[in-house]
């Protein structure tokens, strides 16, 4: 399937899904194009569309294989692009709304890879923490687990690849980094990121709504163990 317009690559994801990748000189441009396609496709409510899952610069389309095939979906996307000139977005166009300040107990015992990160990056443990809190991060995607927000960009000095073998259990609230990304684990789960500390807040409320949404801004603020215990939401 040949790419066209803003879509730089299309790959199969099984017999009932394709994955689109968006072009852009920066991830922000690619992400804005992804969001635009997501909204256009979602609003059309195609009866054959089962899932539409965005990430940084990619969009997974899962279709009902009883009804259509990937060639049909591809032709549908091409005809949408032909109809809608605004499918070609040159600017980011996104509007960021909310800024969250997220407290973090850095170096909490159950979520502490500071020594490993220090070894991999050559920074001291305090420099690792300072680098992590130095940025305002943007939420690019929500997924992996309910309310898990992928945020960027981590300063380059702090980049380290994922663990060779993912951990079987990462604790709820763990604040983690992988390459240019940072995130908070909303619940206990397996994971391959390096852990810096613990956040005391619940990231998903009792009605299954996520605290962090795509486009939001996030700042991290260091807290002590005692402050963590005071703020802990259980």
């Amino acid at each position: 399937m040949h790419p066209f317009g803003d879509i730089k690559q299309i790959v199969p994801a099984g017999l009932d899904a394709i994955l689109l990748y968006f072009a852009g000189d920066t991830v922000d441009i690619a992400n804005a194009r992804c969001q635009h396609w997501l909204h256009t496709i979602t609003n059309l409510m195609f009866p054959w569309l089962k899932e539409c899952v965005p990430a940084y610069d990619s969009l997974l389309l899962v279709f009902d294989a009883h009804k259509v095939d990937s060639h049909y979906v591809y032709q549908m996307l091409r005809s949408l692009a032909a109809q809608d000139a605004s499918m070609s977005i040159s600017s980011t166009g996104g509007i960021s709304v909310k800024t969250h300040e997220i407290p973090v107990w850095y170096g909490a015992e159950s979520a502490n890879d500071l020594a490993l990160v220090s070894q991999k990056t050559g920074l001291s443990e305090q420099d690792v923490i300072d680098a992590h809190i130095s940025m305002t991060y943007k939420v690019y995607a929500v997924g992996f687990a309910p309310g898990f927000a992928y945020m960027g960009h981590v300063p380059e000095t702090l980049h380290c690849a994922r663990l060779e073998t993912p951990r079987k259990q990462v604790p709820k609230g763990a604040v983690a980094i992988a390459d240019a990304q940072t995130a908070i684990y909303p619940s206990s789960s397996p994971g391959g990121w390096h852990l810096l500390g613990l956040c005391p807040l619940n990231l998903v409320d009792t009605s299954h709504n996520a605290l962090l949404k795509v486009g939001d801004n996030v700042k991290f603020a260091p807290i002590t163990e005692q402050e963590f215990r005071d703020l802990h939401e259980g």
Binding site: G14, A55, Y56, L60, A141, G143, A161, R162
Partner: peptide, 19 residues
């Protein structure tokens, strides 16, 4: 590949971690 951006995973996907 040494690094990639996280993306959606559909059922049956065969992931290859660094090991």
């Amino acid at each position: 590949m040494t690094k990639m951006r996280s993306e959606a995973i559909h059922i049956g996907a065969m992931q290859i971690p660094p090991d």
